[in-house]
Computed example of a mutant assay.
Amino acid sequence: MERLGTERQPAVFFKKRLGFRKQRYLFIYSCLLIPLLFFLCIRILPILYSFNISLREWDLLSEQKPFVGLQNFITLFHDPVFLQSIHNTLVYVAIGVPGQLLAGLIIALLLQRLNRSRGLFRTIYFIPYVTSVVAVSWVFRWILMKNGIINALLLHVGLEPQLFLGSPSQSIYWVIASIIWQSIGFQMLIFLTGLESIPSMYYDAAAIDGAGPWQRFRHVTVPLLNPVIVFSVIIASISFLQSFAQVLNMTSGGPLNSTLSMVLHIYNLAFKHFKMGEAAAATVVLFSMILLLSLLQLKVLNKKVDY
């Protein structure tokens, strides 16, 4: 009888432990299910529904939503304004992403060399990132007005005043400059975190081998920062592809649609012209661009480095 009792004790303990594991996993999965359902309802379902809208003649003023297939896409790609918005968006990405990453990396490298007041400078550079986009856009707009501060300084030194945001050839670059200025703090923080995670022994070994500052940066810092660079490039690219608030508040897409972004054009189609079908089709095009560009960047930039 004693042997039988001792044999049953491990079995009972194992059953209790198994029941406790089931309860724990049930609790974990139930906690994960709530945000998953929220994500599906707020993110996935609207995306799928936008695909449905893009295939219909969806006018907010009409009750009929007939299926038109790819007609909305054909109309978009025959629209010179939409093609101009694609061109402008690619300019935002091509100029803004390298400029933003380069500025953030330079400031991070300089801050890494500071021994005192590093936290103060980090806070100062990060403040614009958490400042209202609308406020920053209007400050830049006031500075770059015809009778703004910059033109006043140009006249003071004897130079000709510039149109800035009123020039079809200049305005897009000033919008890009405002976006870069506001996002420097985020990129600086990401790069500074990556720089501080690189072990100093690699730099010591490279210095012993006779590598100079540029060689250490090129062959040690950049390869070991590759995961950070990939993350920053993808985040910055998506941000510039979705440029909206700065464009709307600084130029409203003008002059002559020279700063019109795809997101602003989608906004105009949907809420000014009430063409929800074309707006949804433009959203699908933008979604495809973001997906393809992100996959391409992951393929090209993601390289494994072993030391």
Rank of each mutant, 00 (worst) to 15 (best):
G19D: 04
T89P: 06
R218K: 14
L48K: 10
W214S: 11
G210F: 02
N147Q: 15
L4H: 02
L292C: 15
S183R: 08
W58T: 02
S258P: 10
M145G: 15
L102F: 14
D209M: 01
L260A: 07
A245E: 15
S243V: 12
Q215Y: 01
G119N: 10
N72E: 12
S294E: 13
A280D: 02
S171E: 07
E7T: 03
L296N: 07
T283L: 09
S137T: 09
F14K: 11
F186V: 02
L292D: 09
L159M: 13
L90H: 03
L293E: 03
V12R: 14
S252M: 06
L291E: 08
V220R: 10
W138L: 15
T89Q: 07
R141M: 12
S243A: 15
F82S: 12
T6P: 00
M289Y: 08
I124T: 01
P199G: 10
Y202Q: 06
L76R: 11
Q246W: 02
W58S: 02
L286V: 13
Q162M: 12
V133E: 14
L296D: 08
P98K: 06
R141L: 11
G210K: 05
I106R: 01
V284K: 10
R122Y: 01
F271D: 11
H78Y: 09
S169M: 12
G158P: 05
S288W: 12
E2M: 10
N52A: 06
G148W: 06
H265E: 15
L189N: 01
N268Q: 14
P98H: 04
I190P: 01
F13L: 13
Q297T: 11
Q215I: 04
T75P: 00
L90S: 05
A103F: 03
E278V: 02
